[in-house]
Amino acid sequence: MAIEKDVLDRLLAGRDPGEVFARGGLLDDLKKALSERILNAELDAHLDGERGEDGGAARPANRRNGTSQKTVLTGTSKVRLDIPRDRAGTFDPQLIAKYQRCFPDFDDKIISM
């Protein structure tokens, strides 16, 4: 997968080239954005799956219930993520499991997705 040149130009606009790979730079911003997008998609799939299992049961449907912050130690940096929650507490993220704080292969996993 190639990223279009104009997208890269927009991401790099106004940034100091020396800070792109530094802690808190563009690379860390991209890790955070991609991770949170994946986690939100996981929750969407989880909630859709529960709706299918219910079959219109009388109990209220499970739904989103905000986020909680988690700091994940990757191989190169610390990334603070907003992990989505569901009201019933049944969502167990696959990308970064509950209670997982250290993720040394994080960079490789995100890049492969």
Score class of each variant (00 low, 15 high):
13 A>T: 01
71 T>K: 06
40 N>R: 13
42 E>I: 01
83 I>M: 13
81 L>K: 06
42 E>D: 04
2 A>P: 11
17 P>D: 10
38 I>L: 12
82 D>H: 12
97 A>V: 07
35 S>D: 01
94 Q>G: 08
103 F>A: 15
50 E>D: 14
37 R>H: 13
106 F>W: 06
70 K>P: 05
47 L>V: 02
38 I>M: 13
66 G>T: 01
48 D>K: 11
40 N>Q: 13
8 L>P: 11
27 L>W: 08
35 S>Q: 02
85 R>Y: 02
76 T>H: 09
74 T>L: 06
11 L>G: 00
55 G>I: 10
40 N>E: 14
34 L>I: 14
12 L>Y: 04
93 P>V: 02
56 G>W: 02
90 T>I: 02
99 Y>P: 01
26 L>T: 01
78 K>T: 03
20 V>C: 07
98 K>W: 05
93 P>S: 03
112 S>H: 07
101 R>K: 06
102 C>H: 15
103 F>Q: 14
27 L>E: 09
22 A>P: 01
66 G>E: 01
6 D>K: 13
1 M>T: 09
5 K>P: 11
113 M>H: 15
43 L>W: 02
94 Q>C: 08
32 K>R: 15
41 A>K: 10
24 G>P: 07
81 L>G: 09
81 L>V: 08
105 D>G: 06
97 A>E: 14
31 K>Q: 14
35 S>K: 00
49 G>V: 03
73 L>S: 15
70 K>W: 04
109 K>W: 00
85 R>A: 02
35 S>V: 01
29 D>Y: 05
42 E>H: 04
104 P>C: 00
43 L>P: 01
36 E>R: 07
43 L>C: 01
62 N>M: 09
79 V>Q: 04
98 K>R: 15
65 N>M: 02
40 N>G: 13
85 R>I: 01
36 E>C: 08
47 L>D: 05
63 R>A: 11
3 I>R: 10
86 D>G: 02
77 S>P: 06
44 D>W: 07
77 S>K: 10
16 D>I: 10
78 K>C: 00
93 P>R: 02
86 D>H: 04
81 L>E: 09
33 A>Y: 07
88 A>T: 04
22 A>G: 01
51 R>G: 07
96 I>T: 01
37 R>F: 09
20 V>Q: 09
33 A>P: 04
20 V>N: 05
107 D>K: 09
36 E>W: 10
48 D>H: 11
108 D>T: 12
76 T>S: 12
97 A>S: 12
71 T>S: 06
51 R>T: 08
109 K>E: 03
100 Q>W: 00
89 G>I: 01
60 P>F: 07
30 L>W: 10
101 R>H: 04
31 K>I: 15
19 E>H: 05
72 V>Y: 09
65 N>Q: 05
44 D>C: 06
1 M>W: 07
60 P>W: 05
59 R>Q: 13
